[in-house]
Design a protein around this nucleic acid. Structure first.
Lengths: 335, 335
DNA sequence: TTGTAAGCGTTATCAT
DNA sequence: ATGATAACGCTTACAA
């Protein structure tokens, strides 16, 4: 197996200097005459030259690679976000590396190290365990996905969980529900408070007393929803409506409800948040709050590009509004 | 922002040569005295040194990075496989880079280029459009996921789709079904024949005639299943059983059936293949063939490691057996 | 527009 | 067990 040709080989073959070849293969041929470009391209073709990104990156401190670090590849929320990111980044010539930590804090930290060691140009992260300080310390341009209050030093893009929770509760309230329980996703690592606070705010506003046992913390997964529903079903008096932190949990709850013989929405109204594909594919279809996943990805990507390019400013916080989606898992409370 | 310290800085600080530092940070300290190790580690700590993988990789032609290239991150099949891969690779000190092409041939090719340019050590790929020749040509150690016959030059790991299809059909046959239709996933790009051939083999064996309109080609997605079911529902006489190419398609079909007022399994038995999580969460729960996703990932990772390490041999083909899972979307044909 | 030359931070070879 | 030194393939002033 013979060694891969380098720009030097190309240069010889084309009868130019290696700087010229370098200009052609990187800068988009800034300041290279058309004829020379032709010659170089021809040489590249015949030799089968391929750019060595390691060497280039080492010299220039740019890799044109960014990382997307997410906690849960099984949540259909992220692929949509990823698509938005990729479409923007592709266009700008950046490659996107997926990093899925499966809720493991260790793995998350490892990914950060990988990004540093390999000179990635930026990171988009929905952080679970890694802190604001650690992110700052990494020295890599970074945009946080999800409107957490814990990352004051970074641009943040997400949908307004607080607002989404309020709309959902408001909707259930309008349907006549007063006994509303929460299936509250508890991320491994840090607590995620936006939703809970929105709930408290709402309950206070409407002067509803919500007993603590109606707020059930469950893992951020399908099984969490099932677990939570089984607990809720035993409460006396039973809630008339349930709001889950996301659709995955809600769908889990829906399945448990069927198993338990509870009819949704007749016995119990149920809402999720996110509007993942599966939400419109359950029976009954799930009422939820639609988060603009693709646009979150696009926005985040754009902000990261600005950071990378140094068009910096003070951290921005972009909350893309979400939207109520009425389907058939909720109904007016009769009586 | 001051520049990151290099091994040279560490070497000065520890009073040793940079070769020694290099030995400590890479080789696992092969042939470095304990005291020297201590000194170097201390210097690394105080300086906050971080390894530069670009420089190292350029010199050594190893990056300790491999790529996992899949066509569809939305198919829950892959995260399980990915987990198997990651657990093995983690342990061996390799980072795994996800590359999701979303069924785009162009993106798949781009990923291959990215792997080459960035000197990745290996590729695990479920190829859609890229050919055996292109893979060979890339010069990167490579293991193919999925038992396609089109990649004779590579190690291949998958579950036995042929056998799985046969078991599913055999099961439906035993339940008394004779009019069996197929929702055949058609990957963008090349045809995937293993399942179809198994079907033909089966039908011949049992001397069943299957009209061509009972073999419906649909996109490899939820919507494909819905589409297919709507077509099948119009057939006269209607099939009594349906086998879908995977669970995602089957679940799509299930939802369409509900919309159409068809009762599963009473009006129609329905089977999928894969046994993704969602298969046990539908109503009714989906009968399917369980593919050992995690183990596929593990195996593939191991083979790739062998290839990377040069313990080469002729291409191996590993078919991990799958298993019939009887649930409630199938029933004995009455009458 | 093109060429020259000095690195970038590491690893590998060869001494010591 | 440790050190000196030459690559690795590219980018980037600067000069021509």
């Amino acid at each position: 197996m013979k060694p891969r040709p380098t720009i030097i080989d190309v240069a010889h073959h084309a009868g130019v200097s290696k700087s010229t070849v370098s200009r052609v293969v990187s800068d988009g041929s800034q300041g290279v005459s058309p004829e020379t470009q032709q010659k170089v391209q021809a040489a590249i073709q015949t030799l089968g030259y391929e750019y060595n990104a390691l060497a280039g990156g080492m010299r220039s401190n740019r890799t044109n690679l960014i990382m997307l670090a997410i906690p849960d590849i099984k949540n259909p929320f992220w692929p949509e976000v990823a698509r938005g990111i990729q479409d923007v980044m592709d266009q700008e010539g950046y490659g996107v590396i997926f990093a899925n930590s499966d809720w493991s804090g260790k793995r998350e930290v490892d990914f950060l190290r990988l990004a540093r060691r390999n000179g990635l140009d930026g990171i988009l992260v929905n952080p679970i365990q890694v802190s604001n300080a650690e992110l700052v310390n990494s020295g890599i341009p970074c945009v946080v996905l999800g409107l957490s209050p814990d990352y004051p030093d970074f641009d943040i893009v997400g949908s307004d969980s607080h607002g989404a929770t309020l709309s959902a509760l408001e909707y259930l309230f309008q349907l006549g529900h007063r006994r509303i329980a929460l299936l509250h996703g508890r991320p491994q690592g840090r607590p995620r408070q936006a939703r809970l606070e929105a709930c408290k705010e709402f309950f206070q506003m409407h002067q509803l007393a919500i007993p603590p046992e109606w707020i059930i913390e469950v893992p951020y997964a399908h099984a969490g929803g099932e677990l939570g529903m089984r607990k809720l079903a035993q409460l006396q008096p039973r809630p008339t409506a349930i709001l889950a932190s996301n659709d995955v949990i809600a769908i889990g709850a829906l399945h448990a409800a069927v198993t338990l013989g509870l009819k949704i929405p007749n016995d119990l109204s149920l809402m999720g948040i996110d509007d993942i594909d599966a939400a419109s594919l359950t029976i009954p279809q799930l009422s939820t709050i639609c988060k603009p996943k693709y646009r979150i990805g696009e926005q985040a990507a754009r902000l990261l590009l600005e950071r990378i390019r140094g068009t910096s400013s003070s951290p921005r916080r972009i909350a893309i509004p979400s939207q109520l989606v009425k389907r058939s898992s909720t109904m007016e409370l009769s009586g």
